[in-house]
């Protein structure tokens, strides 16, 4: 940087660090707040007494969560659904998006519109359920993946990436070197598209990890994933509170646990994702294209 620009390297560093620090605080504080709220007295939290430190330390919420029998199996189920679902979705995305990115694909325009329509119009819950039921998927894990396995929005992103970010020249070069179409796909396109694959993995992973509604509708109470188990713990707790409240009193005390559970389940459900995210993150930064094409 030239001196004439009026700001030394050092000053601009300080300003940049300060800005990032502020952004960091804005993003991290709500997470931190949920964390300390999960071990605080919820009525003190609601009365606005909690700011930097927990008020009235308690582990009752976590105790209620972890003493539940379903939590371990729920966690394992969620891991299973997330892994299988993510692999399935990403594979489906790739084998749909790659052909769609080829300009010489017959009926390309028709297929684009065909996919696009499903983004705007859905069948609705009951018709979708009937289709799933008649294909015999109800109660099976595959009911979570097969309907909606290709997320059209994501497919368009991947297709555009193939079209715009993978240089035509590279594909041609590989073909001149004697690659078949399949070989090109596996040896050139897939390695070059790692960044977008990482994005798609994160998208699908988060979606499968958080999804409880599909499981609720199709699995019929067997093999519930973690969010559904959490939801049941919460419902159970609030049912205790409201039933007791109607006639027999004790609402305030029971309701406390319900409020506490809300924070605890957020933490328990979010932590695995927070741990996993950094491992995928490194793919976002790498510039794969550096030096691949000359001129």
């Amino acid at each position: 940087m030239k001196k004439s620009s009026g700001m030394s390297q050092r000053t601009s560093d300080i300003i940049l660090v300060a800005i990032t620090a502020i952004v960091l605080i804005i993003v991290a504080y709500p997470l931190y707040y949920v964390l300390i709220a999960s071990v605080s007295d919820p009525y003190k939290v609601y009365a606005g007494k909690t700011f930097l430190f927990p008020s009235g330390f308690t582990l009752d919420g976590y105790k209620a969560v972890f003493l539940n029998d379903g939590i371990v199996s729920g966690f394992l189920n969620s891991v299973k659904y997330t892994v299988i679902g993510t692999v399935f979705s990403v594979v489906m995305l790739y084998i749909t998006a790659y052909p769609m990115a080829q300009k010489d694909l017959p009926g390309r325009k028709f297929l684009s519109i065909f996919f696009l329509i499903t983004m705007y119009f859905g069948g609705g819950l009951v018709p979708t359920y009937l289709v799933v039921k008649q294909t015999g998927l109800v109660g099976s894990m595959w009911s979570l993946f097969l309907p909606g396995g290709v997320a059209v929005g994501n497919m368009i992103i991947v297709r555009n990436y193939f079209q715009n970010s993978i240089p035509r020249d590279l594909i041609e070069a590989s073909q001149i070197d004697g690659c078949s179409k399949l070989r090109t796909f596996f040896s050139v396109v897939i390695p070059l598209s790692m960044p977008i694959m990482a994005v798609m993995v994160v998208f699908s992973m988060v979606a499968y990890w958080n999804d409880w509604f599909t499981a609720l509708i199709y699995l019929g109470g067997k093999g519930s994933p973690l969010p559904l188990v959490m939801r049941n713990i919460l419902i159970k707790s609030s049912a205790t509170a409201s039933q007791a409240a109607t006639i027999s009193g004790g609402y305030a005390e029971l309701n406390k646990l319900t409020e506490l559970l809300k924070f605890c389940s957020m933490i328990v459900a979010a932590v695995p994702m927070l741990i996993f995210y950094p491992f995928v993150q490194k793919y976002f930064e790498k510039g794969f294209m550096a030096g691949a094409v000359k001129g």
Partner: peptide, 21 residues
Amino acid sequence: MKRINTRGCAALLGAAVFLSV
């Protein structure tokens, strides 16, 4: 995130009620 069949649970529920009517 963008999986089409889970977009807007509320909308789907609404649709379910409507359809059952």
